[in-house]
Nucleic acid binder design. Sequence first.
DNA 1: CTGAAAGCGCTTACAG
DNA 2: CTGAAAGCGCTTACAG
Lengths: 335, 335
Amino acid sequence: MMTRVSLKDIAQEIGVSNATVSLVLNGKEKEGRVSKELAERIRKKAVAMNYHPNAMARALRMGSSNTIGLIVTDSSNQFFAKLAFRIEEYADSLGYSVIVANSNENDAKMERMIQELKNRQVDGFIIIPTENGQGSINNLVNSKVPVVLLDRYFEEINTHHVLIDNFKTSRSATEFLINQGCKRIGLIIYKSELPHMQERRNGFAEALKRNGMYVPAFIKEINYQTIEENIQKAIDDLLTRIDPVDGILFASNSIAIHSLKYLMKRNINIPSDMKVIGFDENDAFDLSREPIPFVQQPIAEMGKLSVDLIIKQIEKEALNPTHIELLADLQNLPN
Amino acid sequence: MMTRVSLKDIAQEIGVSNATVSLVLNGKEKEGRVSKELAERIRKKAVAMNYHPNAMARALRMGSSNTIGLIVTDSSNQFFAKLAFRIEEYADSLGYSVIVANSNENDAKMERMIQELKNRQVDGFIIIPTENGQGSINNLVNSKVPVVLLDRYFEEINTHHVLIDNFKTSRSATEFLINQGCKRIGLIIYKSELPHMQERRNGFAEALKRNGMYVPAFIKEINYQTIEENIQKAIDDLLTRIDPVDGILFASNSIAIHSLKYLMKRNINIPSDMKVIGFDENDAFDLSREPIPFVQQPIAEMGKLSVDLIIKQIEKEALNPTHIELLADLQNLPN
DNA sequence: CTGAAAGCGCTTACAG
DNA sequence: CTGAAAGCGCTTACAG
């Protein structure tokens, strides 16, 4: 690797001290009261020598790196991929870099990634926490590290979070199915204690109870690790009861994709045989036989708000834990 | 933020020098000839004090950061998202972190991202280069920075690259359409000088020429920035000629998605009215009326090979530029 | 067997 | 108006 140009190189070329060069290049010539003319010479020289500051040296000295650590559960999932993309884009516009890490929905890996990003001196974390990641998040919050939870949160941890109103959203998605004429509506959802999942479940139940249509057996809980087989079993069950369901709410993007594949395999026609609605956008929803209705989370806004919240904390604005719950739209509804 | 425990803190607690602690914690006690017993005490203390090395300080001192910079054109595209995921996963298993940046197919942004990652002292780059990014890549290669180009390359730059054999793959995708009975086959492809695109184009042309079916007017070139309208125009054109096409090859993931949406909007039935095949996997291909055939690039292998190549360079194994061209499979073919 | 010292590339009080 | 010095947290020759 070509040896890089350092501050010192410029200082030597011009014949001044490192300090003077540093001051000028950081726009602090006023404070250093460097003469305009000298400042100009230094700037010219820096450009001519193709100088670029060593971000690590600066971070080490300053104790902050202008970097945000983002931990998602699976960056290859379209929903999180888009979220990460927006976060990167917006943070970049504010002069912050983002390092993305994956937890794979694994608590131990999330913990490890937090540690690794800490070692890299990130200034704060935006995290989509894992099911039992409460302890790790709690440690972070207690040690005063800036944190924003995204998409999910924990009841007991009072920190900043940005997500949609899952209860209301799930309720209105369910009401959509009711309005479509469904009489027996199923839910396929992750078995999870995370409140955002509970709220999706509760919103679903609420809509059905209001309409006297609530049947607990129509709720199928599945595991992330064995998603494919669990979904097949769940759908088989929902279809082969004496009172088979005529509508299903899918509580996540991946659940929707796997379920739709299996419904297709079983030759269930959507929407004539079965009406459905899913969470989170996916190219696939626009391309199936009929467009699949889905809950569209405001991804760009969620990204922007979480970046704003993390930067406010980093820049030490006193900030009470802010809980942001946005509204989500239903898309691809039949006319 | 809680003040972190440093090497020095451990040294003071135990009453030895920083050097001794550093040696032990890096497993170099043999070289330092530290007594077994002392080494053990130091290790215990480090754990007890919850010590974690400051990666930036180490990187500054060592001149390398154990970090790979990955520049993709769009991390929200499913193909690149999966590639990035695999790269991160495999690099992590080898003790390297990955910082992902997006160029948005924009040469200037790619250049800026390269500089930013350089400032962060990444040890090497895996890059999916932009159309006219040749200059930036060339500078990198000339300055002996470890580089691997992924998915694309430049004729004139003799550096490492990992991609599929686009000519052969495109040719066999086209042959698939021919075997399906198509007589007039169109291609929708990016207007691009990048050789991987040219090869997809040439492979397409070759298959048709061999079968006496080559019609230049059936090749539609579109721009990435105006993809949606260009595709609509291209498809309108292919459909409304006196000799409308009965098959189309989509030369990229995004092209396939947009095209399929528009074909659906125009009520073209696939595959009865029109047979198609696309590049790169997408959930949508499994969920359309009939599964959409597509070229499946060996994503995990491409990721792994590019990581191996970049690490070999970083670790200074003398290495002639390695050009890897993998074979890609066709998926979702009708039985 | 172990310590003292230098240095990676910065920034920032301090002194003049 | 500007320089000398200290220090961020490490690692590594060097000296003993």
